[in-house]
């Protein structure tokens, strides 16, 4: 999923201060799962903003709504009947959702309430860790299902650097050396030969090196 964290309240207040009526918009997908921008967080932020603004002597009407997905135009269309009542939108979706709103509602200022972080997985309750960088040419089949692109600070493709000590990365003692993890896993699978194969220099064009990426499915696209 895409993970995100709420921006500091102070920054959000600066965004919404010039307006009298705003729409605070949550998203039911990834940001709900990582407890950053779902219905509950919309309620918390609306109350927090309202109180902080009251303290500074201003009063803004905050309408709350949460869409099934902010990154799909079909769901964004739901906002059409209610959008006129608001002067601006504060979106609690990831950057994709914010941009979808800005594209659909050209005359409305749209502000992000979250800092979108990374594509991650849940390690345990309340902890999310980066697992994928969307490089467009997945190597997990060679690396025992553990990604050296997302989990190595240097994105090394052929084994660890000299900073790997006792299975930990030199970046931090809290970070596992991904190449140690890969080696341990390949060994337990009896696939050590995979480690010996040299991976060629990675072609980053599929990972965004050639500009913004797009997928077009001819059978689905209208």
């Amino acid at each position: 999923m895409i993970t995100a964290e709420r921006k500091p309240l102070e920054e959000l207040i600066d965004y919404v201060k010039p307006f009298k009526r705003i729409l605070l918009l949550g998203c039911n997908e990834c940001v709900t799962v990582c407890a950053a921008g779902g219905r509950k967080e919309v309620g918390l932020l609306a109350s927090g903003l309202q109180m902080a603004l009251l303290k500074s002597g201003s009063n803004i009407e905050i309408k709350q709504h949460t869409l099934e997905r902010q990154c799909d135009p079909e769901y964004v269309e739901e906002l059409v009947p209610m959008i006129d009542g608001s002067e601006a939108i504060l979106s609690m979706a990831c950057g994709c959702g914010v941009q979808q709103l800005a594209t659909r509602f050209k005359d409305k200022p749209v502000f992000p309430a979250l800092n979108t972080q990374f594509m991650g997985a849940s390690e345990r309750q309340g902890v999310w860790a980066e697992r994928c960088q969307g490089c467009g040419d997945c190597v997990l089949g060679i690396t025992g299902g553990i990604c050296p692109i997302a989990r190595c600070a240097k994105q090394l493709m052929n084994g660890p650097c000299g900073g790997s000590t006792g299975g930990k990365c030199e970046v931090s003692e809290d970070v596992d050396c991904v190449w140690q993890l890969i080696w341990d896993r390949l060994k337990s699978l009896g696939q050590e030969d995979r480690y010996v194969d040299i991976m060629p220099a990675k072609d980053w064009r599929s990972g965004g090196g050639s500009g913004p990426r797009k997928i077009i499915r001819e059978d689905l696209a209208e």
Partner: peptide
């Protein structure tokens, strides 16, 4: 008890 319950109480 949710964060929302507490915040709403203050609000």
């Amino acid at each position: 008890v949710d964060a929302l319950h507490i915040i709403k109480a203050f609000e």
